[in-house]
Simulated assay, not measured.
Amino acid sequence: MALGTLKKKRRVQVVALAAVALVLSTALIGYAMRDGINFFRSPSQVMAEPPMATEVFRIGGLVEEGSVVRGQGEAISFRVTDGGASVPVVYRGVLPDLFEENQGMVGTGRFVDGTFEATEILAKHDETYMPKEVVDALKEQGVYKEAEPGS
């Protein structure tokens, strides 16, 4: 009788230990990934509900025509639009070769005092290669044009 109780007790301990290990590993994975997840927002979403200055997120759309201003040094400012709203962007660094006005872009950074401060800029020359979120945001605003075959 005592042997059966000991086995049962050991089994309960193993199950409890496995449950604690599972919860702990899930918590550690979540903690490790907290900075690796950047949510996407369109310019219209950013202007409608401005995120907190501490939140890192991605913004995407088209570089507004006539808005690119190259400052002193590596500072560049421009506006990104989805046709419904326009967000000022500041970036310090070297822009990708494909970066142009009226072309798609995706930036990662923070929205501070009404300006998106980008830490990374990705340029997309053709809508075919734009992230799905950017295409969806542009379609929602009626700005997106399907790429012509053969172009």
Rank of each mutant, 00 (worst) to 15 (best):
R58M: 14
V90Q: 14
A21G: 00
A147S: 04
G114H: 02
I37E: 12
D82H: 14
P50Q: 07
A32R: 05
F78S: 01
L98D: 02
Y91S: 09
G93N: 08
V135M: 01
R34L: 04
R58G: 08
Y91T: 11
G104M: 07
N38Q: 12
A75E: 15
V23P: 02
F57L: 11
K8M: 13
R34W: 04
G36Y: 00
G66C: 10
A21M: 06
F111R: 10
E133H: 07
V135E: 05
G114C: 06
A27Y: 03
D126I: 13
A53M: 01
T119W: 08
R41N: 10
T108V: 15
V90N: 13
A19G: 03
F39H: 11
A16K: 03
Y144D: 00
A48Q: 14
V90I: 13
G104N: 07
A53T: 01
S77N: 09
R41Y: 12
K9Y: 04
V14Q: 07
K145H: 01
D97I: 06
E117Q: 13
S67F: 09
E49W: 04
Q45M: 06
A27R: 01
K7N: 06
E148S: 01
V87T: 09
V94K: 13
R41Q: 14
G36F: 05
E100H: 15
V94N: 05
V80R: 07
V56A: 08
V46A: 05
A27W: 05
H125K: 02
V56I: 11
G93L: 03
I29G: 08
V106A: 11
I76E: 09
L122V: 09
G93Y: 08
G36M: 02
D113C: 08
K7R: 10
G107K: 07
F40Y: 14
L22M: 12
P51F: 14
I37W: 13
G150C: 04
F40L: 09
V14C: 07
V112M: 00
T5F: 01
V20P: 02
E101T: 11
A85H: 10
E127L: 02
V143W: 11
Y91F: 15
D136A: 13
L24T: 13
V80C: 02
L95K: 12
A85I: 02
R58L: 15
P50H: 06
V112P: 00
F99L: 09
M47A: 14
V68A: 12
Y129H: 12
E148P: 04
N102A: 13
